[in-house]
Computed example of a mutant assay.
Amino acid sequence: MIVTYDLSQFGIADGQIVVGAEQQYWTWDRPGPDRVGLNTLAYYQTFFDRTLELKLGYLRNQNEFTGTLFGGITGSNMSALFQAGMSTNAAPTPAINLKLNFDDRLYNKVSVQRSISPDGAYVHITENPTGLNWSTANAGILLVEEAGYKSKAASGVPDTWLRAGVGFNSSRYTNLADPKQQRESGNSFHYIAADRQLWQSDALGSPSRGIYSGFSVMGAPPDLNRISRYYELRLYAKGAFDNRPSDLIALVATNTAWSKVAMDAALAKGQLAHRETTAITGTYTAHLAPGIYASVGLSYIHNPTSITHTPQTEHALNLLVSTLVFF
């Protein structure tokens, strides 16, 4: 549950106070520990006719950078950035974000964020289930910078979004080549992403409807991160059918390249290990009513586990069902 209080009624331009709490419960151990706690606690305001945007508090930077949501619903896998410290919905951390809009298309966005635990989101949530603690063990400061070009769809003008970013983390990470040695700082990540509308099905009435394509590339040092590269190709359609103008169809192919350092360490122990994980996912998201969306999809994954596997876990076929409610 997230609640926003509008401060513009008091003369504060675009001023907002955002407070959110979440509860998550798992019937399976692996995805993460159960928690009840803070989701976000933020203050947002613009300056100089929206040239500058400020957001500070306990933030979820997974929603602030790279464009996790494409087509409004479906999103990219950001595990390559989470491992390098990016805060998540389940692990918000103190941060200050500033966005400079050079015009209505070009922008530059920076963040000074307390990193999540260098041992991962699972450890972070275990140590700080409420999300209220200022920090966790071995966590430092994460600096993130993103530059981008974003043009909204108009009649005869296709929707376009180009962005690239880097992050530098002072947290103390375990070296995957020798986990027993002293922890070291200096982790980082980088990414580029692009989305482009290829065809407008209703240019005059609703120019955002049509077919889109996009890609994402993310990377991090293989000695400190289990994911060294992440690649994604996506093809999606908004309002493909005239009688369903708000529905979304998406086909996404991903490839996760695992750290060679971690893979070599696993092989040295006699474990079965793989260099990469490949997945193809198709989803259909239906707009059922104002603020209510339902999604169904099918995902095939080759090597669904992280680096090591057994003969029984080389392939997976997952049925995906979700519901989103906004009010």
Rank of each mutant, 00 (worst) to 15 (best):
I125F: 03
D119C: 02
N101M: 10
N101W: 07
A139R: 09
F102N: 10
S111W: 00
N89T: 14
F102M: 14
S117D: 14
R105S: 15
N108S: 12
P129R: 06
A95V: 06
T136E: 03
A137M: 03
A91L: 09
P118V: 00
L142V: 04
N97Q: 14
P94D: 12
S111Q: 01
S135N: 15
R105Q: 15
N101K: 13
A95Y: 05
P92L: 10
P129H: 09
Y107L: 04
G131W: 05
R105C: 07
L98C: 06
N133A: 12
T130I: 05
P118C: 01
G131I: 08
L132A: 13
N89C: 08
H124I: 01
S117R: 03
G120S: 09
P118H: 01
F102I: 14
G120K: 08
P129C: 10
Q113A: 08
N128W: 02
I141F: 02
V110W: 07
V112W: 14
N97Y: 02
N89L: 15
V112N: 11
S115E: 02
T93A: 08
A91H: 08
I116G: 02
N133I: 00
L98V: 14
L100R: 06
K99S: 11
N133T: 04
A95L: 07
H124L: 01
T93I: 04
P92N: 11
P129Y: 03
A91W: 06
A91P: 09
V112I: 15
N89K: 13
I96G: 06
A139N: 11
P118M: 03
N97P: 02
S115R: 00
V123E: 13
A137K: 07
Y122T: 10
S135T: 14
S135I: 03
V123I: 10
L142K: 05
A91M: 09
L100S: 12
D119V: 01
R105F: 08
I141P: 01
N128K: 00
L98H: 04
T136V: 10
I141E: 06
F102R: 13
H124M: 03
L142T: 05
G120T: 09
L132N: 08
A91S: 15
A91E: 08
S135Y: 01
P129E: 11
N89A: 14
T126L: 11
P94G: 11
K99L: 11
D103N: 15
A121V: 10
T126S: 12
Q113M: 06
T130N: 12
W134T: 07
N97W: 01
H124K: 04
D103H: 07
L142H: 05
Y107C: 05
N101I: 10
Q113F: 00
A121E: 15
N89M: 13
V112P: 05
N108E: 11
S135W: 00
N128G: 04
N133V: 00
A95H: 06
R105N: 15
A90N: 13
S115Y: 00
I141S: 07
P118R: 01
N97D: 15
T126H: 06
